[in-house]
């Protein structure tokens, strides 16, 4: 089976059955998926449990992201492909919890960029690329939709803005001091 185009995968995600958002047993869904992908040995229960320590809402959000990825990987193309176990483990155990910590899974329903992020993140994790796209194009586009990168850039810029604000405040203080000095000398 040939690699589907991006639009097909986005539509596949947009057509996610509502049951995927109604807290189905994650370990069972993951177990089924991993088995059909040819990795029955991977511990679905461990992946479903995560690292723990999250508040209930954050934990639910993590699960919803993993369920969305399960839906994507249930696409016939992926089920017929030989996906690497380490890539899948990295996706479920590392990448998705990281995204889930900053982005609500509900945005997968409302924002096409988030669906594209999930598709591209998944493809990167399992070492695949979209048909008709060079590696460089793929990297550039992922960078545009990567919410983790967006968060890091925003934090970096915010740090610089805090620095800039300090400089501005110092400038304002200096201007006030100069004005006061001029006033008192008059």
């Amino acid at each position: 089976m040939t690699m589907p185009v991006l639009a097909d995968l986005l539509r596949w995600l947009a057509d996610t059955p509502p049951e995927f958002r109604e807290d189905p047993p994650l370990a069972a869904v993951l177990g089924d998926l991993l088995e059909s992908l040819g990795h029955p040995g991977m511990d679905a229960a461990v992946l479903a449990r995560g690292e723990g320590g999250l508040k209930p809402r954050a934990e639910r959000n993590r699960k919803l992201w993993i369920l969305a990825a399960c839906r994507l990987l249930w696409h016939p193309f992926f089920r017929l492909s030989n996906l690497p176990a380490d890539g899948l483990f990295h996706l479920f155990a590392k990448e998705l919890p990281e995204v889930a910590a900053i982005t609500a899974a509900d945005s997968l329903m409302t924002e096409e960029d988030r669906r594209e992020e999930l598709v591209r993140r998944t493809l990167r994790a399992v070492g695949l690329g979209l048909a008709g796209e060079t590696r460089q194009e793929s990297e550039d586009r992922f960078c545009q939709v990567d919410s983790v990168e967006g968060r890091l850039v925003a934090r970096g810029a915010a740090e610089r803005e805090r620095r800039a604000r300090e400089v501005r405040e110092a400038m304002a203080r200096e201007a006030a001091r100069m004005a006061a000095a001029r006033y008192s000398s008059e």
Binding site: D140, C143, Q144, D146, E149, G150, L152, V153, A154, G156, A157, A158, R160, E161, R163, A164, V167, R168
Partner: peptide
Amino acid sequence: LLVSRLIRHFSVRWLAGARRFAAILFP
């Protein structure tokens, strides 16, 4: 490096990155 990441991330929604860019350049 931060500027370069910002340019890539906001290459389509460029207006959304304008404030951040100005903040980095201010000092």
